Each structure stands twice: as structure tokens, then as C-alpha cells.
Simulated scan of single mutants.
Amino acid sequence: MPSYASFLIRRLFQSFLIVVGIVIINFVVLNIPPGDMADVMAGTAGGGDPGYADALREEFGLDEPITVQFVNYMTSLLRLDLGYSFTRNMPVMQAIMDRLGATLLLMSTAILLAFVLGVLMGMIAGKNAGKPLDAVISVLALIGYATPLFWLGLLLILLFTINLGWLPSGGMKTIGMRGPWWQQWLDIGEHLILPAFTLAVFYLAIFARLMRSSVIEVAGQDFVRTARAKGMTEGRVYLRHVTANAMLPVLTMLGLQIGGMLGGSVVVETIFSWPGLGRMTYDAIFARDVNLLLGVLFMSSVCVVVTNLLVDLLYSWIDPRIGLNG
């Protein structure tokens, strides 16, 4: 227990340092380009008077030196105050919370689909290495890995919405939808199928390829041969000995891919008009809403770090020797 507690404390401290480093990098990078939101607001209002833009900068504290702005931002962040979004006309925290649920629903569905199917396909391919079934799964994984998200999303809309009329093409729910809660959730589920599958395909291919190679490697280990020599059936060998050990690299990759999936969700949410953080981030970039961008990046980095921390804990639970010494 003491070893596990020290492992958890060490990981929490590392996670804190990572989040602080990400916050600093985000602030510096977003404030390097010329221009600011005062220019955008003045242009949107049709104002060409430099005095109007200067007044806006003074109002939002943008006339202060960058070091003072950073200290003010970090002070507000310690109070969990992410600032005010001028494009949304509301606090940044409220704007994020309004969209966070939709993004978490999309990402959790996609990552669960990719992980379960990827592990299953990789397990089948690894167990049948060199056989036709292995070749079919490997080709499918290669196609999924090489297919661009935007092209796949548009192709699915063309097939399942325009040609077949089976699934909606965008949004999170039907406008004006009324009925019992279960009907509303079914409606959300129908809207979720295409974007979740589009986002999952690339990561499904990664997990399948990694699981296949891991199964092949673990299946040749001495402890697996010993289990077979003791008369254990092939199914029990793979279920009890091969699967758990082969999944360790896949779990590591799962944590690493969460950040990439956040980036992919921007494309998917834009294609399918999904009301999540990705679509809001896309709009905030062109509006130069730095406060909103910093808030989204901060919350995204926290989600990624927390996910990696949970994966580390799961990793150490599956194999304590690796986790506690890592």
C-alpha cells in the first residue's frame, strides 16, 4: 500500500507540472501573433477609429505588458476564473460547460468503440497470424489508418444520409424533438453514430495493429509455452495469459491518443455540425477570442492528463511490477 500511495502522489505531482507547463506554452503561443481581439471587435463593429480599438484594449487589460497579463491570467486561473468570452458574451467557463458534455459523449463513444473493436480485431489477427483472416483484418486496419477523417465523414454522409436516408447528417438531436427521455436519447444516439464511427476508425486501426503485434510477441513467451505444456486449452491460454499481457502496450497507446482525438474531433464536429468544443474552438480561432481558446486548451489538457493518469493507474493494477517502478 505505501508503494502504491507513493506512486499515486508522484503521478499527481507530475500531472500538475505538466498542466502548468501547458498553460504557460498556450499563453505564450496565443499572444505571439500580431493583432488581438480588440482589432476583431473593432472591425466587426465597423469601427476604423484607432481610438476605439485602444479603448477596448484598456477595457480588457490588453494594453498591459505581456508579463502583467500573464500574472493576471494565472491569478484568475487559481480561482478557476477562465475569463470572459466576447464572442459568446458569457464567462468562458460557462461557454465550455455548455459544450463539454457533447464533446465528452462523442469522444468516449469513439474511444470505447475503437478500443473494444481494435483489441478484438487485433486478438483475432494475432491468433491467426499468417492466415487469410489475419490478412483481411490487416488490410482493413491499413485502410482505416490511411483514410482521412474529412473524406470518410463526407463519404458516410453521402451513403447513409443522402443515398439511403438511414441516419441524420448533422447536429446532436432533431430540432423540436419532443417525447419521453428514452426517445430523446435514441434520437441523440442516431445523430451520434456517424461522427463517432468517423472519429473511431483511425484509432481502431492503430489499436488493432498494435494488439496484433503484441499478441504475436506474447504468444511466444516462455510462460505461455509452459501453460500449454501443462495441458491448458488454447482458448484459456489466450484468455488468461496472452490477452492481459498483450493489452499493456495498447493501454499505453490509449492514453497517448486522447490528445490526438481531441484534435480530430475539431474536424469531425465541423463536418457533422456537432455542438462540441472542437467546433467552438474552430470559431474562436478566427475570432481571435484568446480567453476562450486558453480556456478550451486548459480544459482539454486537464482531460488528457487525467486520462493518462487513469491509464497509469490501470496499468499498475494490471501489472504492479511495472506501475510501481515506473
Rank of each mutant, 00 (worst) to 15 (best):
K230N: 12
K230C: 05
G231D: 04
G231T: 10
G231P: 12
M232R: 04
T233D: 15
T233I: 02
T233F: 04
T233S: 15
T233A: 13
E234M: 12
E234D: 15
E234Y: 07
E234P: 11
E234C: 04
G235H: 04
G235K: 04
V237Y: 05
Y238S: 06
L239F: 14
R240V: 05
R240A: 07
H241E: 10
H241K: 06
V242H: 09
T243M: 15
A244H: 09
A244W: 08
A244S: 12
N245E: 11
N245I: 09
M247A: 13
P249N: 08
P249M: 08
L254Y: 14
G255E: 13
L256N: 12
Q257E: 12
Q257P: 00
Q257W: 00
I258H: 11
G260A: 02
M261L: 15
M261E: 08
L262S: 00
S265L: 00
S265E: 03
S265Q: 01
S265R: 01
S265C: 03
V267C: 07
V267S: 11
V268F: 10
T270H: 04
T270V: 11
I271S: 07
I271N: 08
I271T: 11
F272H: 06
F272C: 04
S273D: 03
S273R: 06
W274S: 01
P275M: 03
G276K: 00
G276M: 03
L277D: 00
G278L: 02
G278S: 03
R279Y: 12
R279E: 13
M280Q: 12
M280F: 03
M280K: 00
M280V: 09
Y282N: 14
Y282M: 13
A284H: 11
I285R: 08
F286Q: 14
A287E: 05
A287F: 13
R288P: 01
D289N: 04
D289I: 02
V290N: 13
N291S: 14
N291Q: 15
N291R: 07
N291P: 05
L293P: 07
L293N: 06
